[in-house]
Amino acid sequence: MKTHLALLRGINVSGHNMMKMDALKKALENIGFKNVRTYIQTGNVFVDTEEENAASVGFQIKQEIFKTFGHEVPVIVLKKEDLEACFTNNLFLKSEGCDTKKLYVAFISKELASTAINDLKMSQVKPDDAQIDSNRIFIKYAVGAGKTKFDQKYIEKKLSVTATIRNWNTITKLLEMYAE
């Protein structure tokens, strides 16, 4: 069995795409996923399956959400190594006096070239800062996530990708849950 982490974008936010995690868990178990567990209400779902291919797992989850709840929800599936890379490759963590409350990670639907940072036009969102690392964008907000235009929609528009963002506390907890 392989454990996959599915990040669902845009559920239970501002009254949109509402679904209870217990109902989601049951729906995913009904299509054969094992050991389904969730973390908070915003769509972090671990599943165990014989399926190795992350894209296939994401497609199955996306289909079942649409069938059961009627929501078209983007799904990005990660491996444990993707979360571990958040700790080893994030240069913002290495800076003196790093405030992890202002650190976020945007998980992207495809691998990005390091030159994609130019496409983000960071001068338009200063003083926020970002670093691209494969299929992740490490973000350091100057004030906070609620007061920036450098959000998931901005990233998706500039890079023509699907993205979902998690705060540093969530990243930390999800990595801990992989070990459980």
Rank of each mutant, 00 (worst) to 15 (best):
K2M: 14
K2G: 06
T3R: 15
H4T: 03
L5D: 00
L5I: 01
L5Q: 03
A6G: 06
A6P: 05
A6R: 04
L7G: 01
L7K: 05
L8T: 03
L8A: 04
G10M: 00
G15Q: 07
H16F: 04
L28N: 11
I31K: 12
F33T: 06
N35I: 08
G43D: 01
N44W: 01
F46W: 05
V47K: 02
A55R: 13
G58Y: 06
T68C: 09
T68E: 15
H71P: 00
H71W: 07
E72K: 15
V77Y: 02
K80I: 01
E81W: 07
E84V: 10
A85Q: 12
T88V: 11
N90A: 06
L93P: 01
C98W: 08
D99N: 14
K101H: 14
V105H: 00
I108Q: 05
I108C: 03
S109A: 00
K110Q: 14
L112R: 00
L112A: 06
L112N: 05
L112I: 01
S114P: 11
S114D: 14
A116T: 07
K121S: 10
Q124G: 08
V125L: 10
V125S: 08
P127S: 13
Q131W: 06
Q131H: 10
I132H: 00
D133A: 09
R136Q: 13
K140Q: 15
Y141G: 07
G146Q: 12
G146S: 13
T148R: 12
Y154A: 08
Y154K: 10
K157F: 10
K158Y: 05
S160L: 12
V161N: 01
V161Y: 01
W168T: 02
W168C: 02
I171H: 05
T172N: 11
T172E: 13
M177L: 15
A179T: 10
